[in-house]
Simulated assay, not measured.
Amino acid sequence: MKIILFSTLLIVWVLYEADCTETQGNIAKAYLKYLQDEGKLGESPQNLKTRYQLFKNNIRMINEHNSKQSSFKLGINKFSDLSDKELSQFHGLNSSLLQDEEDLLSSSPSLPVSVPDTVDWVAQGYVTPAKDQGRCGSCWAFGSVVALEGSHKKATGVLKNFAEQEYLDCVFTTRDGCTGGATHVCFDFNKNTGHMASQTSYPYTATDVDRSECDLTKFKNSLISGKVTGRVTSRHIETEENTVKLLSLQPVTLFIEATRTLHQYKEGILMDQTCWSQTNHAVAGVGYTPQYIIVKNSWGASWGESGFFKLMRGWSNCGLYISAQYPVVELTGEEETEEGAQPALYDHSAIVGPDPPKPDPDCSNQFGDSYCDRMSRASCHNPQMREVLCRKACNNCWIF
């Protein structure tokens, strides 16, 4: 007890030494409370000043954003005193692996002509509660599992809570899955092995230290009444319209650029103006409304809106519309022997603040049309994509 008290007093002294003004002193008190709430009081004094500066920078960003008219709010959370390098540990999409994608098991999506105005797979019981990948770059496993759970529910009527750790241990045999991966190999693994355990029998450990630990005989197979027979991959759907059409069919794996703004997201309809569509994070689309896309993340239920977030429609959304994947699940004819998993409860109907401003095509653009056109040509695949990525707003040219 005395050691804990001494450590706490030492932390307070270090913070107040860094900031002796009244305003900064209040931030120091807020950071001490943050350390207590997040269980970070064990941080060494050597690192404390650096983390405190990161915390102050995030406080400044959050307060500045929340003071403006906006469709979303930011907030303090477990990411608020981490560096950019540390934040990358909570991503994990390896784009170089996507370039080597094997298409033998893949088919192009058959998109419906018309779709409902609103689709909510969470409310329909196709989605399990939010999970937490921890400090392991395993978003690719979590994003894949959401799509697999949705495909299995669609084919069999049973929602399973599948094990991300099986992907971590078994998909990559020569590299550490916590350093990143790709989603298509997960569905190919399920097809080739016919195996996927439940999270109950194969708990998540956020580690992939020993690549020789893949022994499927140790874990009961939960692919009973349904089996993976292939996957649907759309590498360059490039439009919000096609993404929505895919989402009308079932939950799908999507990719996004996870920015500091996304890390500090708290609630509302996110319109991130800080990204460049350089995707580094796998997530899952689980529905949509006329205003936004519903996305399930893998940063735990305490982050965002119960682990989910809403992305505004009508914007590029940090590369979310570039690619989509899901596995094809067909019935095996075997009788299901396991009970279904508990579905997520997420009421996404609340909208923070007024509708966001739309770009005015007649307003002035301080960067100039030539700059905007040049930047968009360098970062897009075709004229249709350029129109989405390059948006004018008064005195700004937003390039996503």
Rank of each mutant, 00 (worst) to 15 (best):
C186D: 04
E338C: 04
S7Y: 08
Q366H: 09
K2H: 11
C363L: 02
R386G: 05
C397A: 15
H184F: 15
S222R: 11
W315T: 07
F72I: 01
Y16Q: 07
L35C: 13
Q342C: 04
Y31F: 15
F367H: 12
D369M: 07
C275R: 05
N57G: 15
G353Q: 08
Q291H: 10
T179Y: 13
N94E: 04
E334K: 15
L246K: 01
H195V: 01
C178W: 07
K227I: 05
S198H: 10
C397W: 03
L331F: 01
K296N: 03
D19E: 10
E334D: 10
S376M: 06
P129L: 09
Y265H: 02
Q366P: 00
I237L: 15
R231T: 00
T174R: 14
I351N: 12
E330V: 11
L105G: 09
K29S: 11
R235M: 04
T21W: 04
F72Q: 02
V283E: 02
D120H: 09
F142A: 02
G333Y: 08
H65S: 09
I3K: 14
E166T: 04
A341R: 04
A206L: 02
T229E: 12
A28H: 07
H281G: 08
G230V: 01
K245C: 02
V328K: 09
K85I: 02
H263Q: 10
I256N: 05
V283T: 03
I322Y: 07
G143Q: 07
S316W: 06
G42M: 08
L270R: 01
Q250R: 14
